[in-house]
Structures are given as C-alpha cells and as structure tokens.
Amino acid sequence: MRLKADLHIHTVLSPCGSLWMSPAIIVQRALEEGLQVIGITDHNSCLNAAIIQSMAQSHGIFVMTGAEVCTAEDVHCLCFMKDLHQLDVFQKYLETHYTTVQNNTQRFGEQLVVDENENIIAEVPQLLLAATNISINALRSKVRELGGLFIPAHVNRSSYSISSQLGFMPPDLYPDAIEISRQISIQQFSENPGSFGKLPIIQSSDAHNPEDIGRAYIFINTKNLCFESIAEAIRTNKIISM
C-alpha cells in the first residue's frame, strides 16, 4: 500500500510550537489532510508522542513516535523509536544529556505535556531548544542500538543542519535517510545532492502550527501499517515524492 506520510510535526511540548498543537487537533488535521502516517518530533523530548499514537490509532493513522534531537554540534536529527518501551528508554537517555539552561516561557514559549483532553500534566523546566551534549555520531549509535530510525533533519537549511554545522555529510554517519525542508522539491535536491549522494530522501512539513500539517509529505510504499515495515521502506528508499 501507498501511505501518505508527514514525519516531522511539533506539539505544545516544543516551546516554538503553537499552543493549538494539542493531540486532538493534530489528529484532526492529519485526518483532514488524508495522512496515514505522522511523525511526532518535539525538540529533545518524546513526552507527547505516546498519547497522540494511542489517539490516532482508532482513526487508522499510524504515529511514528520520537523526537527532533539537537546534537552537541547543533545539528537537528529526527529519531524514531519502534515501540513505547524503547521510546521510554530513549526519553531517559535524552534527559541525562540536557544542558542546565532553563526555559523562559515569556521569551521562548511554554513546554507542555498534555493528556487527550488537553489537560496539562507537566511543564518541562529545561529549555528543550538548547543543544544536548550528545555528538551526532553517538546519537546515531544510540538510535541504532535501540532499533530506531535516524534521519538528519532539513539538511539543506542554512541553520541547525548537517550542511551548516558540519559542512558536509560525515562519510561514517550512515543515516537511514535524510530530510529536506519544504522550500525545495526532492527532484530539485536530487539533481545536485553533493555529499548526500544517493541516500533516501524524505520531505516533511516541520509543522509548528495546525495549518502547516501536511504542507509537505511523501508517499511510502509498504506492506503493513507498522513501524518495522515503514522503517524498512524508508531505509530501502521506497519513497515517492509529493
């Protein structure tokens, strides 16, 4: 089957995410856009992903749970975990690598963990936008160890990307795929990929507001609506651009 997927969506947990990005609204918007797979990727935290996964399930939407981790080099990477146990392990791993910078809600916005009825369960005190002290290669090893999916985010952007921070793709990184931002098409990027070579390319919305969900997406050719099938399809480049 051909699944419409937007794998990079923020929630109210990201300080820069709109306060409208509640689990219910995200699921609603995904339904409106006809998305069958969405990725929940808040900055440096997975705490809202599980609730969205359970809410979306009844609507036939599969949620790839994970985070957009900011490495020590200031490179953003999408990391997806295969099940809730691994997600929990990964969350604890991230928490041991936060810096001590505290969030200033006036300046950066709130970082809320919520339930299905939009009740606030917790507020994260550490600024999730700050870089962790995990190097990009160490993060890649950890995600591989946990059986997850590792995708450097918006590699063509001039900030927080492999291109800007590291100059070019480290030849020993072996990511599962790369993500490009929505300002360019996959075809345009593939014409001159430079050091990214023939890596599978995904494109997603990086939505911080409800209206941006589904602004960019890909189709994934896969047999089943489960993590392993989707991850395998991405690794083997069974991706069709929008």
Partner: peptide, 10 residues
Amino acid sequence: MQTHKNVAAI
C-alpha cells in the same frame, strides 16, 4: 568549539 571529525577534513 566543534570537535567532530569533519573539523579535520576541513
């Protein structure tokens, strides 16, 4: 302050 291997290459 970067310590990645790409520093050596550049």
